[in-house]
């Protein structure tokens, strides 16, 4: 299927888009819808994010927040040098983040490249969410669709996705085609998300959760971020995610805030809950708590659950563990007291 930007070209019928835009789902109607979304004033958005960042989270709120942050982390390794050993190490950390304090919650997921999914699944073993029926456990998330650039043919991207799902990935982190988006070919981006979503379908008819990475650092403007967020949601994304972590800037508080506002508006419009995942660049507990505040005050505290909010991070976890140890012991901890994985 080759979709061009030609106006009027029909695009894939995704249930959400049909419901909101109508059955006459074309490139033109999609464009009109996206361009009708209110603009963003960058100064005001950044000021609001900065304001949220000044909340002072202390004592029991901080203790709760630190545990919450851990439980929302997609513990990530996305290196060309990744090996099964590295992934096993990551999985071990995901299951038991702090061996000295078994009350420490597990992270939400480990996030790896598609070829590492089998190792992650094996390493998690009984802790793998897919191996449990109680709703607990750690998920395996796989980046797919020619991550991080997304520069591959549609068929390669779909095969990438199908592979990862078949290998046991619970979640797929796909990238949108930023080139297509920036040149205004919204229908193409839309269709691709719909197609990838279909590729997330398992043999039993269930779907792997689809996180749609907008790569906001390449979209550049908040108006684009907002438009891309709507587009990803309309096309069926379960999550919208800021970044691959390979492009700077990655996640920022204002970008995440603007995405949360879209999610909030989608909920107002349809009652459906869509997740948000800032990824890349969140390294400290202090920063992570600012995100929690932003989520709670924008979409509501209800969103602070793994199926609605995630942090894509690697070094963040250790900083949270250090802070957690400080709260528990009353004195500051050091890097020798957390594990390097």
């Amino acid at each position: 299927m080759d979709i061009t930007a030609a106006s009027g070209t029909a695009i894939a019928p995704a249930a959400r888009a049909v419901e909101v835009i109508g059955t006459d789902l074309t490139e033109r109607s999609l464009r009109r819808y996206l361009e009708g979304i209110a603009g963003v004033d960058a100064v005001g958005l950044e000021a609001r994010a900065a304001g949220l960042g000044t909340r002072s989270i202390k004592k029991e709120s901080k203790a709760w927040a630190l545990d919450k942050v851990i439980s929302l982390i997609d513990l990530t390794t996305l290196e060309g040098a990744d090996t099964p050993g590295k992934v096993r190490s990551l999985a071990a950390k995901a299951k038991v983040p702090d061996a000295n304090d078994l009350s420490t919650p597990q992270v939400a997921a480990v996030c790896v490249y598609g070829d590492m999914v089998p190792y992650a699944v094996t390493a998690l073993g009984a802790a793998h969410a897919g191996a449990r029926s109680d709703g607990g456990g750690v998920n395996v998330a796989a980046v797919a669709t020619a991550f991080p650039s997304g520069r591959a043919s549609r068929s390669v991207k779909l095969a990438d996705t199908v592979d990862a799902v078949a290998a046991g990935a619970d979640e797929i982190d796909m990238v949108i085609d930023r080139g297509a988006f920036l040149s205004g070919r919204y229908g193409q981006v839309f269709d691709e998300i719909v197609a990838v979503k279909e590729a997330c379908k398992r043999v039993d008819g269930s779907y792997a959760h689809l996180k749609v990475i907008l790569e906001t650092g390449e979209l550049s403007t908040y108006d684009n971020v907002r438009r891309a967020s709507w587009l990803a949601i309309l096309a069926g994304g379960d999550f919208i995610k800021t970044s691959t972590g390979k492009v700077s800037p990655a996640a920022t508080l204002p970008v995440t805030l603007s995405m949360l506002e879209v999610v909030r508006d989608w909920h107002r419009l349809t009652g459906e809950q869509v997740g948000v995942k800032p990824a890349g660049g969140i390294r400290t507990s202090k920063d992570a708590i600012k995100y929690l505040v932003t989520v709670a005050e924008t979409v509501g505290e209800e969103w602070l659950q793994p199926h609605l909010f995630r942090f894509g991070a690697s070094s963040l976890l250790n900083d949270v563990l250090l802070q957690r140890q400080k709260l528990a012991t009353g004195h500051y901890s050091g890097s020798s007291y957390v594990t390097i994985d």
Partner: peptide, 10 residues
Amino acid sequence: MTFLEYAPAP
């Protein structure tokens, strides 16, 4: 206490 109640930070 919910998160949004935020512990006092005087």
